[in-house]
Amino acid sequence: MEIFATFDDSVFLEARDRVPVTLSAYDAKVCEPQWFCETTALNTEDPLEKQKIYKFRGDLAVRRGNHQKALDAYSSCQEWISDNNLTIRRDVLEGMARCCTKLGQRGRALDFANLLSKEVSNTCHLTSLLLLKVSIYQHFGAVGPKMSALQQLCSLLPFNPWNWYNLGQACLQLLESDRTTERCESSEEQNDGGTEEQQEEAEELNENRIWLKACTCFIRTRLLLRILRQQQFSFVLQRTESALRMTDEVLQRLSPKETTLQALTEVVSEDLIPDKMREDNQDGDSLASVCVQSFRDRWWNKILLTGALEADGRQTRTQC
């Protein structure tokens, strides 16, 4: 039996003679440190070069903490970005939003964030946008909108423990603000048409629901961190261990009953299946379905159906 019987003879022929190509001389461009800061740097007609100069100036100003100068540089850069360069456009818009946040311009920061939302086409874009909104709302103390953005992040990346941890912290912050508001506005509540006892009952129920959401978030955080801990080392493991300790401390202060703890743990651990938690399956829901309502349907409403709130009683729990 001939082993090479199926090979064509052309396989063993010599390669054709190749014509040598002579490369032209190439002089690499040498740039001095911070060359883009020089006034002569803009003496060019190349739009791409001007875009780079303004972008580098903005980035350097941000690093130095001069956010107004950075905002001006980014604004100039925006004029020279080509229509098909979406990556730089998104980077510049995010930089402008963060500069406006640092400058206390909440409206403009959200306007730039809304411009970014129009160009969202994948989960990475949406994740960056939601993280930007969280930082804006965090800076201005807007707890409600911050919670909405965090809920969307948890829908998009359901196996990320840090989003759940931050959502739980937002619930605690809302509990504190609700208690303060309740004390400050107690004299105005009698003018709302209902009796004082009915209004206090409604407020207590609202506070208890927030308490239940906080418990849910920290239980979910603890479960996810324990799973991740099994494959971590060094400083990453130390960070996880520290977060686990803080999570346990918060749950002790929230002090849910054992029945409530078991019921919530059962609900939030339903999807914690190893195959489902693989990295290639962590894109979460489709972009069209990532919204606050989908999060409520998936988590809050299911948790309320367990009756955990009624089982734990109607008393104010928070001591944080």
Rank of each mutant, 00 (worst) to 15 (best):
R18D: 10
T316K: 14
V11W: 09
L71W: 00
L212H: 02
V267A: 13
V19R: 14
M96L: 11
T265V: 00
I81R: 04
S187C: 10
T180G: 08
V21M: 13
N166M: 11
D72P: 00
K213Y: 09
A170W: 00
Q138D: 15
F159M: 12
C171T: 02
D46Q: 05
R298S: 14
S177E: 13
R90W: 06
A15D: 15
I303M: 09
C217Y: 03
L212C: 13
D297H: 11
V143A: 03
L305G: 09
R183D: 10
T240G: 03
Q232L: 14
F7A: 10
V267D: 01
Q34N: 15
L167N: 02
L110D: 00
D178R: 15
C291N: 15
F56R: 09
D27R: 12
L42S: 14
G313R: 07
T265S: 15
E119Q: 11
K213M: 11
E45W: 06
L93T: 00
L287I: 04
L153N: 06
A214S: 13
R108L: 07
R245C: 10
L131G: 10
L272G: 02
S117K: 03
V62G: 01
K52R: 15
R229I: 06
L157H: 07
D248M: 07
D17Y: 06
A149V: 04
L237F: 12
L309P: 01
I303Q: 00
L86W: 08
T316N: 12
S135M: 04
E32C: 05
P33C: 04
Q315A: 12
F295S: 02
Q199W: 03
Q68R: 01
Q230S: 11
S255G: 12
W300C: 04
G95Q: 01
L48P: 02
D83L: 10
L244P: 00
L205D: 10
T247Q: 01
K213H: 11
L150P: 05
T221M: 06
M1E: 07
Q190V: 07
H125R: 10
N66H: 14
D280R: 11
R18Y: 08
A61N: 01
R209F: 10
L157Q: 09
V267Y: 03
V11N: 05
C99K: 00
S294K: 05
K118H: 08
C154K: 05
E2F: 10
R57A: 09
S117C: 04
G284N: 02
D91T: 08
H125N: 15
R57N: 13
Y26L: 09
W164D: 01
T247C: 14
N85K: 13
W299D: 03
D72R: 00
S135T: 10
A61K: 01
D59G: 06
Q230N: 06
I303W: 01
